[in-house]
């Protein structure tokens, strides 16, 4: 091993530490009492406590927010799938002079600054009497889940070997049967990755939830961020515990998302 290679490897390990260390420190912080957290010299060894975690999990607002987050994320992801997958398949398999325009339109939805849609939507939901409800959040998020599903599912459908679809047609399958019984199952592994991405996107969403909810429909990121405002001093231990609870679902999907990326950036046999 040459010197430069050793140096390069050291840099890579340092970078890995830069990712992991702050996270481990946060996990440790969740088990610390305030006296162990607020020390001029950072403390690695301490008497661990479960108080922070128990406090977070026993709060009514956290439970309510967890339910809201799960319901809202799952519902909008499902809407994204139901409406996005057929559209993605049509774009991937039935090219026409509209295809490119449609793809650009779907992409351009992501250009819209969220604050710019949240402000008018707040007024609209207030007028309709749906402000601060899960329904209004789900509808608002559907715009995001439908468009992300379309974008991520198009390559998935393009990778389905055309021969399989044609063989099914020869066997007498209609166009719809080919989609439901051939293309969907064959592409399903890639599609699960797209589903996970759109779930993480909604689970993590903050600005729209902040503007469209005040009490009933608050999601987890909002409640977690409010933990910093309990009393006079920032309760860092409780905050660390809330951060971990909120981060768990996306981190648990890490393996799935990583293999989705691998598939997306591997050589495409069809091209």
């Amino acid at each position: 091993m040459t010197l430069s290679r050793i140096l390069a490897k050291t840099v890579l390990w340092l970078m890995a530490a830069l990712v992991l260390f702050p996270l481990l420190w946060t996990v440790l912080g969740a088990f610390k009492q305030t006296v162990d957290l607020l020390t001029p010299v950072p403390r690695l060894f301490f008497a661990p406590t479960l108080d922070n975690i128990i406090y977070v999990l026993s709060r009514q607002s956290v439970l309510q927010a967890l339910i809201n987050s799960v319901v809202v994320s799952c519902a909008s992801v499902v809407i994204g799938l139901v409406l996005g997958l057929p559209a993605a398949y049509a774009v991937a398999r039935y090219p026409s002079r509209w295809t490119e325009e449609i793809q650009f339109f779907v992409l351009s939805l992501r250009f819209l600054p969220p604050v710019a849609t949240a402000i008018p939507l707040m007024v609209i939901w207030l007028n309709l009497g749906l402000y601060d409800s899960r329904l209004s959040l789900i509808i608002t998020y559907s715009l995001m889940t439908i468009s992300i599903t379309i974008w991520l599912a198009i390559p998935g459908f393009q990778r389905v070997p055309k021969e399989i679809e044609e063989a099914a047609r020869v066997d007498g399958y209609g166009a719809y049967a080919v989609f439901f019984r051939v293309a969907l199952p064959v592409a399903s592994r890639a599609l699960i990755g797209a589903l996970a991405f759109s779930f993480v996107l909604i689970w993590n969403e903050f600005l729209i939830a902040l503007m469209l909810t005040t009490s009933e429909a608050k999601t987890m990121p909002i409640v977690a961020s409010e933990m910093s405002q309990l009393g006079m001093n920032v309760p860092w231990g409780i905050l660390n515990a809330a951060v971990i609870l909120l981060s768990l679902p996306p981190v648990l999907l890490l393996g799935l998302l990583s293999s989705f990326l691998n598939a997306l950036f591997s050589k495409n046999p069809n091209r």
Partner: peptide, 22 residues
Amino acid sequence: LSLIFLIPVLLPRVCAAFVWKF
């Protein structure tokens, strides 16, 4: 490394913000 380096972007931005704020 590919797996480790994917973690930060998956974290909710609120969480990343609190981790680093402290």
